[in-house]
Simulated assay, not measured.
Amino acid sequence: MKTTIILAHPWHGSFNKAIFDTVITKLEEQKKEYQVIDLNKDNFDPVLREEDLALYSKGETTDKQVIQYQKMLKETNELVFIFPIWWYDVPAILKGFIDKVMLKNFSYVETKTGLEGQLINITSSKVITTSEAPTWYIKFFKGNSIQKVFINATLKGVGIKNVKWLNSPYTTSGKKEKRKSFLKEVALHF
């Protein structure tokens, strides 16, 4: 089993990439096996097209990349998401990843009482985000789409529990020292 890192930021000069590099460094120091899903670098197409929607209720896809990502997730025991919070939510490419990859009979089955998550091999997860808004504002005034929707509903719905969320507020406008401090905090979680 290994750690899978999902990076959902298009610019490799971003602070998200610095977070990614910090995570990789820590995993390599600990000699942990890892694999990377860099959605933008992989040219992942997040659009759920008609041909895929026709197969959606069967839990099938025509997208070979989706099949590869599913294989990677089955080999995963720790999952790390790294992404910016845009418009108080996940980036579109990450939403598309969820829509296309987390298919029925792969990541969940339907029961009489709701979804039963199938990705129970993933025993821990970290969601590491960046934002311009302060974390308290995202949590208390904007409906907290990261904790309440992405973590408590989406990830839990596919069987991923034990999720830790770290957010770097004021990422663009804040001081360099705050960003350095956040990278040290990220390193402590690995």
Rank of each mutant, 00 (worst) to 15 (best):
Y108K: 12
R179E: 08
N121F: 06
F190A: 05
P134I: 10
V127T: 03
I5N: 02
S14L: 07
Y137D: 06
K17V: 07
F106H: 10
E50S: 09
Y88T: 13
A133P: 02
F106L: 11
E75C: 06
K64E: 15
T76Y: 01
E185Y: 06
E185H: 08
E60A: 13
S107P: 03
L115R: 08
A92W: 11
Q147A: 05
F150R: 00
N16M: 04
K31Q: 14
F81Y: 14
G143H: 00
F190H: 14
N16A: 04
A18K: 15
T113R: 11
N40T: 07
I122R: 06
K178M: 12
G174S: 01
Q35K: 13
Y170I: 06
V23L: 05
I82G: 00
T4I: 11
K180W: 04
N43A: 13
F141Y: 12
L188T: 13
Q70W: 08
S173D: 08
D42L: 08
L119M: 15
R179L: 14
F150I: 00
I82L: 12
T130P: 03
L119C: 04
K74G: 02
F44K: 00
T76F: 02
K104G: 09
I24W: 07
P91M: 03
G96Q: 02
Q35G: 14
L119Q: 02
L55G: 10
L48W: 04
F140M: 07
A18D: 10
Y108L: 11
M102V: 05
K41Y: 10
F182N: 07
D89R: 12
M72F: 02
T129V: 15
Q147P: 06
I19T: 01
L7E: 01
V36N: 10
K156H: 13
S107Y: 03
L103A: 05
R49Y: 12
T172Y: 12
P91D: 03
K64W: 07
S168C: 15
N77W: 07
W87F: 13
V36P: 09
I85T: 06
L103W: 05
K156F: 13
F141L: 10
V186R: 01
Y88H: 13
V66G: 01
E60Y: 06
V158D: 00
L79F: 11
N105T: 12
E132T: 13
S173H: 06
